[in-house]
Design a protein around this nucleic acid. Structure first.
Lengths: 153, 153
DNA sequence: CGATGATAGACAGAGTATCTGACTACCATG
DNA sequence: CATGGTAGTCAGATACTCTGTCTATCATCG
């Protein structure tokens, strides 16, 4: 028996409502990707894949877009390089900089990720209906935009 | 200039759509709580506060509800005890077990958290409209329930 | 063109949040 | 009361993030 919690359902915070499905989704997704041939990729690495440009990105740019420090991004990129998902090249226009580029394997991972994500969404569309799923997406975008606004309480 | 990313807006995964507002919300919330007198509480500690029963909970129960190992939960609870948010008591019915109870400070923190969360939601209601916020909450719950279902693709 | 300040990235070290494995003390059942 | 299960601890590892510091390179200005 689970005793009453101090956060009754009516009072579930929006944070809790956002976190719960996110966790489940991420777990499902990365378990599927691991089973599908990409076992070394973990959720944190999406910070790289989400922002890397097709023509290659500089470490500092990746860090800034992901809102991480350069050191943290270097840690993630180093791991991905070791495992063959990205390659590093000197930037011809800046002797200090390195370009991070996706390898074929990195591109294959992104394709698999998008496919796996679409599969989960299809399952969700089957459960909720496509209309509701679209609504959810739209509302999440609107909420995110509102939360990015510093005016907010 | 930000170069084109391989995840165009149309293709933003649901995971990305869930994570972005969650991160912003959590940052806003915990920054506010830190400023409001609870600087030592971090998001991970919500695993304790979310599940602890008013009459006290056993460590193992907390761990199970939060889907963490006993060791991880012990780590979080130990920190909260050090900082005066919970107290530990022997379980009168089981010599092996300990009850974790909220102190007044712990109760005050939960009250502040709920208040701060409500404030953010009010801001969001002002930005989106109360109807949309309610819809978002409902859809998140439905999506979470669907994701908990193992049948899902 | 050379000095000065800013930027890209690397190196060292730390802290948080999780895990696994092995252990002790206690409970429950036969 | 022996045997097996459960509650919690101890030890150690890993992942991911940070701060501080440093070198090499770039950009600008006199």
């Amino acid at each position: 028996m689970v005793p009453s919690a101090p956060f009754p359902d009516q009072a579930r915070t929006l944070g809790a409502l956002l976190r719960a499905p996110y966790r489940k989704l991420a777990e499902r997704l990365y378990a599927g990707l691991a089973a599908g041939g990409f076992p070394e990729i973990r959720p944190a690495h999406s910070a790289v894949f989400r922002h890397i440009a097709p023509e290659g990105s500089r470490l500092t740019d990746l860090a800034e877009q992901a809102e991480l420090t350069k050191q943290s991004m270097a840690y993630l990129v180093g791991y991905l390089e070791e495992h063959g998902y990205v390659s590093l090249h000197p930037d011809p226009n800046d002797g200090r900089a390195k370009q991070v580029r996706l390898t074929r394997r990195g591109q294959a991972f992104i394709a698999a990720l998008l496919k796996a994500s679409a599969a989960v969404e299809d399952g969700l569309a089957a459960a909720l209906g496509a209309t509701k799923l679209k609504q959810l997406r739209d509302l999440l975008e609107q909420a995110d935009a509102a939360l990015a606004d510093d005016q907010l309480g």
